[in-house]
Structures are given as structure tokens and as C-alpha cells.
């Protein structure tokens, strides 16, 4: 049986993993390669790196770090943030990442989803989206860009469907309302998107305890879920989350 994936997400700034609350107040939590190895050995099904920039000012992707991660682990990983062109995607993929995640870039230039899928295969192309609650759209959720700073007026569910049609192989639903709060995933929009598209959907933002993952899979129909602060802090392990899921009857990989 296909298992549900737990994906630790590492936000990297200036070569260090950081964790913030609602994209502010970032604190240093460790070395990216060491953490990748530890999580891979600890039962992560996949990893995701965001905003691997060589420096905060010069927003170019740190390809050396992607290569170092690829050489150190043998599970899939995605890279997002700082990708601004097909050439960037190619550098990231050739450096050993399985997937490239796009967010604001795809909103500005939706055609790049199809170009990426055509060039690298749709399994390499992940669409990240940052919806917020909004009465202005039919689904009740609106897409924002630039780390939730700008509203677009685009309906979140319509955007998910369009991105899947254009060639996105996977969609990450990241909720600002929940991000970093550890109060649980935003189940409503995750479920709306998961039920609307025929590609896998990843729940992101808000995980604070193992039971939140059961909700994401059982109630919101997610195929995978992102975890960050609750394991970076050492409060929980991936094994804790998986044991909880297993006892709730959710299929997960228990040997690694």
C-alpha cells in the first residue's frame, strides 16, 4: 500500500537552517547537511529545502549546498525559493534535487510550470501555494505571493486546478493562518485542493503535535505533510509522528 509521506522542511538562510513564526523571528536550528542526514536516518520520507540562498542580499541558490545534501542522503528532496528561471531549475536538478518548488514565480509566469514539466518531467515540478481566507473568492481562499505579503485576487482552488493542468506534479498547500503557530494544519483549504486535483497534495504549515498529521491525512485527504518546528525543537521525532499515524490506521513507512 502506498504510504503517506512525512516531509521535514528546512528553511536555509546564509548556510544555516532557521525556523520562524509566520515568516518572522527566524532562529538558528542547525547545519543543513547534518540535519538532512539525521532526518533521513530518522524516518523522513522526503526532505524539502526552502530559500537556499547564498546570502540574504544576493538571492542566488547555493548549488554547492544542494550538491552536498544530494551526496549525503539517498531519499528524495525538493528545493524551493530563489528559483527564478528554467536555467535555475536545471542547475538545481543537475545538482541532485528530485524536485523544484515554485510559488510566486508561477503566479507571475504560469507558463513556466508547463515549460518545467516538459523539460524535466512533471514529477520534478512542485507548485507551492500560500492561500489565505478571503471572502473575495468562490472557494473562500485567495492566493498570496512573496511570503504572504501580496494578495492576488486569484481563487486558491482554481489556481491549483490550473497549475495541475499546466503540468505541476504535486501541490503544496501552505497556510499562513496556521504557519508556525503549531495549532494544526488548515484542513479546509487542504481538503478543497486535495479533492479538486488529481495530483498529490502536500499539507503544510501549523503542525504542532502528531495528531495534527492524522487530521491532514484522514480529514483533509492530503498525500503528504510538511513538518518543521515541532521536530527541529527536539520536542517530537518523526518516529513519534509515524507511531501516532499507524495507531490511527494511516499507512506509513515504519522501517528505514
Amino acid at each position: 500500500m502506498l504510504t503517506k509521506r512525512i516531509i521535514p522542511c528546512l528553511d536555509v538562510r546564509n548556510g544555516r537552517v532557521t525556523k520562524g513564526v509566520r515568516f518572522k523571528d527566524n532562529i538558528d536550528v542547525g547545519d543543513p547537511v547534518e540535519m538532512a542526514v539525521a532526518y533521513s536516518g530518522g524516518g523522513a520520507d522526503e526532505l524539502c529545502f526552502y530559500d537556499i540562498t547564498a546570502s540574504a542580499e544576493r538571492r542566488s541558490i547555493d548549488i554547492g549546498m544542494v550538491e552536498a545534501v544530494a551526496a549525503a542522503i539517498s531519499i528524495p528532496f525538493a528545493v524551493g525559493g530563489g528559483v527564478s528561471s528554467l536555467a535555475d531549475m536545471e542547475r538545481v536538478i543537475l545538482a541532485g534535487a528530485e524536485k523544484v518548488s515554485m510559488n510566486s514565480l508561477a503566479v507571475r509566469n504560469p507558463a513556466i510550470i508547463g515549460e518545467g514539466a516538459e523539460t524535466f518531467g512533471r514529477q520534478c515540478i512542485v507548485l507551492g501555494m500560500d492561500p489565505v481566507k478571503s471572502p473575495a473568492t468562490a472557494s473562500g481562499y485567495e492566493i498570496t505571493t512573496r511570503g504572504f505579503r501580496e494578495r492576488t485576487g486569484i481563487d486558491a482552488v482554481e489556481w491549483a486546478k490550473r497549475a495541475a493542468d499546466l503540468g505541476a506534479g504535486e501541490i503544496v498547500v501552505n497556510s499562513v493562518d496556521a504557519d508556525g503557530t503549531r495549532g494544526g494544519f488548515q484542513l479546509e483549504i487542504t481538503r478543497l485542493v486535495a479533492d479538486a486535483v488529481d495530483v498529490p497534495v502536500v499539507a503544510s504549515g501549523g503542525a504542532g503535535r502528531p495528531g495534527h498529521f492524522t487530521e491532514a491525512f484522514r480529514d483533509a485527504h492530503a498525500d503528504a505533510a510538511i513538518v518543521a518546528g515541532m521536530i527541529h525543537s527536539g520536542e517530537y521525532t518523526i518516529a513519534d509522528i509515524k507511531r501516532e499515524l499507524k495507531s490511527a490506521g494511516v499507512p506509513v513507512r515504519m522501517t528505514w
Partner: peptide, 18 residues
């Protein structure tokens, strides 16, 4: 969902990445 993405069992045992 298609594609199948993720870890699935072979012969009902260990999971591998598909």
C-alpha cells in the same frame, strides 16, 4: 492520484520509493 509518488511495499514487505 496519478502519478503514484511515494513509498510503497514490494511483496507486502519493505517500502521503496516510486
Amino acid at each position: 492520484k496519478v502519478p503514484e509518488i511515494g513509498w510503497n511495499q514490494v511483496n507486502g514487505g519493505r517500502e521503496y520509493y516510486f
